Amino acid sequence: MLGTASTKKSGCRARRADRTSGTPHECFDGLMERGVRSGGQEQQWRLQNETEAVWATAVAFVLGAGAGILLLGGDPRPLAGPQSLAMPMAAVGGVVAASAFVVSTVRHHRGETAPMPRWQMLISNLSAVALTVVFAAVTAMGVLLATQVLATGLQGLRLGALGGGMLAGVASAVGGRFAYGAGIGLRTVDLAGILFGFLVIGTLFAMSTAADPRWWEHNFSTLGGGAGSWAFNGTLIVAGLIVATVGSYIGRDLHRLLGDGALARVTRVVVLWALTGAALAAIGLVPLERMKVAHNVIALGTLALFVIAAVTTARVFPGSPRALVVTTIGLTALVGVSVVLCFGFGIFGVTALEAIVIGLGMLWMLTLVRVLGILSPSQSRPSARAKLLR
């Protein structure tokens, strides 16, 4: 075997030398052939997944339309408002999307946790459960916002069981395809994008149904009061769940990058993001109009936890990626300037300041997870430790 390897190596070296005389480089050709073949297999795999997603979309439409027709029987209903199509459609779409994610995850990741120790398997399974809830909530909130917008543009429109069922089928198809694709392969950057999108969708819906149309004169927490408070408070609760799950995925990527030797530092990162998510959810569970002092304390605590989690995560990175450093310095400066303009000169109100800070924070998180996605391997990495902390 040693002789064979030596012969292949010397032959390859000889052919490499032949490049100067114009002779084809056979070793290079062989590598290129294998690369094309590997690329072809990757392409075939993606096409197969796309075909599966199309079938999943069709099944989701049929299930959503069937359930919608059954639930929306009786007199025609408006798109939004009391006794409307919105809530049943949102419920159907959410259930179908969650089911699509479960089916896709089981199909494409069955046995992936088998070589993992119990603690790592538990974290992975908890993340999957959390994501199932997330995709149900994202789809439902998207349906509610869409029906609210359509009701504004199509005033007076009322649909019966068949028309409402078809709309429920379309909503289920969109949510089902999105969730099924996520079950095939969900990256940390995708999850951070879902967080940002869900915050925007939920806040817009809360604005459109706010009991006080002049809520913006105070702050975003004012949306958590009145008859429609469930929309904003529910958005915060689900967003907290997403933040905690993003933290779990960040920990997964850091472990793939750094290995078991960094488990103690990675664990601190995951715990801090979990606490940040729990604090964000607590803001929704403790509305401003009921417990003002507790609400404000929790809100400030959430901001502090976010900063601590961000700094801790950045320090775990090997080296200091320039993209992350530049973004951190730039956003810190912008937040400082915004605070001065708000409280020092009164150029804009607290609501605008909150929107700026949240937007900049999400931009920083997106930069973080994109850099992490570039650095970390995509393959699963089972830990060799039987216990997380020892």
Rank of each mutant, 00 (worst) to 15 (best):
T222L: 10
A60H: 10
A314F: 12
T222P: 06
G181E: 11
A80K: 08
F345M: 11
V269H: 04
A231S: 05
L159Y: 05
L157E: 04
P287S: 05
A90L: 08
A53C: 12
R15G: 09
K8Y: 13
L70G: 12
L258Q: 14
A98H: 05
T276M: 10
I374H: 15
L72H: 07
Q44N: 15
L263E: 08
P82H: 11
P76K: 05
R390I: 06
L389F: 09
M365C: 08
T132K: 04
A56S: 14
A323L: 12
V129G: 02
G153K: 09
H109C: 05
V92W: 00
L186V: 05
W119F: 01
G197Q: 08
L389K: 07
G234Q: 04
V293D: 10
I347D: 09
G183P: 01
A65C: 15
S248F: 08
L191Q: 00
I356E: 00
L360D: 10
K9P: 01
L334W: 10
A192E: 03
V335F: 01
V286A: 06
R19G: 02
V174M: 10
W45D: 15
D253P: 03
L388S: 00
W215F: 14
F198P: 00
G22E: 10
K292Q: 15
V133F: 14
S248A: 15
V143N: 00
S248V: 11
A333Q: 00
R118N: 11
W364Q: 15
A179W: 06
P287G: 01
G225I: 10
V96W: 03
P88F: 07
G68N: 08
L85P: 02
M32F: 12
P88I: 03
G359Y: 06
L191I: 06
G349E: 07
L186D: 01
F232A: 05
L372G: 06
V103K: 09
A98C: 02
T23C: 01
L300A: 12
I123H: 09
G22K: 14
A173P: 01
A90V: 02
C27E: 13
T209H: 04
H218V: 14
P377R: 12
V243P: 01
R107F: 10
A98P: 05
G202Q: 01
S84G: 00
F178H: 13
R46C: 07
A100V: 02
T152F: 15
P76Q: 04
A14N: 11
V337M: 11
A227V: 13
F61D: 04
A80S: 15
M166L: 15
A14H: 12
L368T: 11
T302M: 12
I298L: 12
N49P: 03
M116L: 00
S99Q: 00
R34Q: 14
E217T: 14
T188A: 09
A274M: 11
G68H: 10
S221M: 03
G284M: 02
G361Y: 02
V326Y: 09
G22T: 09
G336L: 07
A146R: 06
G165H: 02
A304T: 10
L154I: 04
V143Q: 05
S124I: 03
F317A: 03
G193K: 03
N125F: 07
A274V: 13
R13G: 04
G349P: 02
A244R: 03
I283L: 13
L254R: 07
A168P: 06
G373P: 00
V103A: 11
V325L: 13
Q379I: 10
L79P: 11
F196H: 10
V297N: 07
R110M: 07
